[in-house]
């Protein structure tokens, strides 16, 4: 019945329709918000809790015909005591702790340079954004597979012409870790540039003018004005990039498959290997939760730092 009124309401005059519609603001606002809330509950929160539940069972997809038992913390214990997981966790932490600071530094540097540039700024800005658009798989293919190919790649060809040794980009464990970071830096520094540039361009001008009047040097102004003002953005950017870096899998899957040995395997890749491909969904679920806990810890610490920063600067 309501529906017919709605349809009839359309040709009516605008002034009357509001009353006729009888859709109160309360109903209206919920109609708008509800789909998003329901989507999140059904597609994120419910699965999220489901995984937690599975991690307390011994469910294995290839153990056919076996009943699914509740085993308490057994899977968690075997995840936490697994050498395999220890290595992949350390790999992931190492990746985050190396790649993100490098991207941070390079991004800040390039953003500062862009901010100084007088000509061609929009060209550089647009061009530098490009790596962010490309799929990591394509980036891996271009840089990792083609240019860094140990035998027929361009980089080794140039290095050897210059008299250096052949670099085993992918088959030496330490170098492979570095190569993964290299690929990530090429792609994700763009995000840092973007964040820092936006922040630099929205900096207030007054402190600088005052400082110049006081006879400060450019370096002093950078150290005592720019850096503190960039603080919150720097932390936000690190938070977003860091959380993404924790989830890394595509670069690794396509470039090294986690090898050589286990040198580059990330936790997400382990979850895929054991839980999805190996069918051991109980173990995979517990391992996935380990990753979530690590990420939450990381986010918590950064947010704490952010709050402290804000408090210090406002005092």
């Amino acid at each position: 019945m309501r529906q017919t009124t709605l349809v009839e309401a359309r040709p009516a005059k605008v002034g009357q329709s509001r009353r006729r519609l009888e859709i109160s603001d309360v109903t209206f606002k919920w109609i708008l918000l509800l789909p998003a809330v329901l989507a999140v509950i059904a597609l994120l929160i419910f699965p999220f809790l489901f995984t937690l539940g599975v991690s307390f069972t011994d469910w294995h997809l290839f153990n056919r015909g076996a009943p699914i038992n509740f085993v308490g913390f057994k899977m968690w214990a075997s995840v936490l005591s697994s050498k395999y997981i220890h290595t992949t966790t350390l790999n992931t932490l190492g990746f985050v702790a190396t790649a993100v600071p490098i991207e941070f530094g390079l991004g800040l540097l390039v953003a500062l340079a862009l901010n100084e540039a007088t000509r061609g700024r929009s060209f550089f800005r647009v061009f530098f954004l490009m790596p962010l658009m490309i799929s990591p798989i394509a980036v891996v293919f271009i840089i990792g597979r083609l240019m860094l190919h140990e035998d027929i790649g361009a980089v080794n060809a140039i290095l050897m012409k210059l008299g250096f040794e052949r670099v085993m980009w992918l088959s030496d464990p330490m170098t492979a870790r570095f190569t993964i970071i290299l690929v990530d830096v090429w792609q994700s520094t763009a995000f840092m540039i973007l964040m820092f540039l936006a922040a630099l361009q929205s900096l207030p001008q007054e402190p600088y003018e005052a400082a110049i009047v006081d006879g400060s040097t450019a370096l002093q102004r950078f150290r005592y004005i720019t850096l503190p003002l960039l603080g919150p953005v720097a932390l936000t950017a690190t938070l977003i990039r860091g959380l993404d870096a924790f989830k890394v899998i595509d670069i690794i899957y396509a470039l090294t498959g986690g090898g050589p040995g286990q040198a580059t395997e990330s936790v997400t890749l382990t979850v895929y290997r054991t839980g999805v491909k190996g069918g051991d969904i109980a173990f995979g679920s517990a391992a996935a939760y380990l990753l979530l806990i690590l990420m939450a810890l990381f986010a918590f610490l950064l947010m704490l730092a952010m709050r402290r920063w804000v408090r210090r600067t406002t005092d």
Partner: peptide
């Protein structure tokens, strides 16, 4: 609450979605 979903690692959702 919405923003925080961004943090969710997809790894956590692989298994329930696979079963679903």
């Amino acid at each position: 609450g919405f923003l925080i979903q961004r943090m969710f690692p997809p790894a956590v959702l692989l298994i329930p979605f696979l079963l679903l």
